[in-house]
């Protein structure tokens, strides 16, 4: 069976994609944990799935829709929407700065 290895650099790339800050020590440990988990997952490759369709959901219900109508009971007031915000200003969420200019 092929042993899938994910090295520390790959771990750091994945962490970036997943927006998870990790330390060097964590990336070492995560590489080891990945190996253990992938060793189990790689067993799937021994299954015969030729001519087998994928199952993405088990109920087989299709196109479940509702009327395109505003349901007030499903909406938050502005105060409710902001109730748990760590930072807010003038009735808006305060978000981290993502754009920079040469001045700052």
């Amino acid at each position: 069976m092929s042993k899938k290895q994910v090295d520390q650099n790959q771990i750091k790339d994945i962490a970036k994609l997943a927006h998870i800050p990790i330390s060097d020590i964590e990336s070492q440990q995560l590489a080891k944990d990945f190996a253990k988990t992938l060793a189990v997952v790689d067993q799937l490759k021994t299954a015969d799935v030729s001519r087998i369709d994928s199952t993405h959901q088990v109920t087989a219900f299709k196109n479940v829709t509702r009327e395109d109508k505003v349901d007030e009971s499903l909406s938050f007031t502005q105060a409710e929407a902001l109730a748990n915000a760590p930072q807010q200003k003038d009735g808006f969420f305060l978000v981290p700065k993502v754009l920079t200019t040469e001045d700052n």
Binding site: I14, I20, F34, L44, T55
Partner: peptide, 28 residues
């Protein structure tokens, strides 16, 4: 962290077919 990152890896280009799609077939 472990689970989010492994999921991110499994769904990334090149690995989704190898892991995610295969798993959904074995699920069948």
């Amino acid at each position: 962290k472990r689970r989010i990152m492994l999921g991110t890896f499994i769904l990334s280009k090149g690995y989704a077919e190898q892991y995610y799609n295969l798993a959904q077939k074995v699920r069948t």
